[in-house]
């Protein structure tokens, strides 16, 4: 079965040992996902598989057969950059930009996890869960994505801004 990558079908590699990251970078020349460690420690290779964030260096490409893979190259659409991409630029959520594709994909996967009700280690109130993705929740949930340039503040601010405006939007729609 083929793998759908940013909407385009690609065939799974013949060698089952090829990681999703190497498939993306070396076979398909999609260099957005980065190899910062190749051992699950930095998050630079984060992509979305069926909307869930995975470390593509620790994922075998063949595991993704029949599934939808979204990389940073797939975030913008015909209307332009994704709101989170725009917020990263506005809040200066990067310097060198090497961790950025992973931060972006991870943030989108993280927001979806939060909305599905997945708690984190700092989640205190399970009753009122889902009311707000606090800055502390975002920091905790994004801690698998390292940034050595020190763009932490801008990254968190960008994620919070997009999340808040989305939640405001949802509330407005619910009220209407």
């Amino acid at each position: 079965m083929p793998i759908r990558i940013n909407g385009t079908e690609a065939s799974a590699p013949a060698d089952p040992r090829v990681s999703l990251l190497d498939l993306l970078r070396e076979d398909l020349h999609l260099f957005g996902a980065k190899k910062g460690c190749n051992q699950g420690a930095c998050g630079a290779c984060t992509v979305l598989v069926d909307g869930q964030r995975v470390l593509s260096c620790l994922t075998l490409a063949v595991q993704c057969e029949g599934r939808d893979v979204t990389t940073v190259e797939g975030l913008a659409d015909e209307h332009g950059l994704h709101p989170l991409q725009r917020a990263f630029i506005e809040h200066d959520g990067f310097q060198c930009g090497f961790c950025t594709p992973g931060q972006l994909c991870s943030a989108l996967g993280m927001a979806a996890e939060f909305e599905r009700g997945v708690p984190s280690v700092v989640t205190v109130d399970f009753e009122d869960y889902g009311a707000d993705l606090t800055l502390e929740e975002i920091r905790e949930r994004m801690s698998g994505n390292l940034c050595r340039c020190g763009a932490h503040n801008g990254i968190i601010a960008a994620i919070a801004e997009v999340q808040n405006s989305r939640q405001d939007q949802d509330k407005k729609e619910a009220a209407a």
Binding site: L30, T71, A76, F94, G97, T100, P101
Partner: peptide, 17 residues
């Protein structure tokens, strides 16, 4: 804002490897 921002957030900046 950084002039290379749009490239970097799309994974389009070409690094050495």
């Amino acid at each position: 804002s950084r002039i290379d921002g749009p490239l970097k957030v799309q994974g389009k900046a070409t690094f050495a490897a």
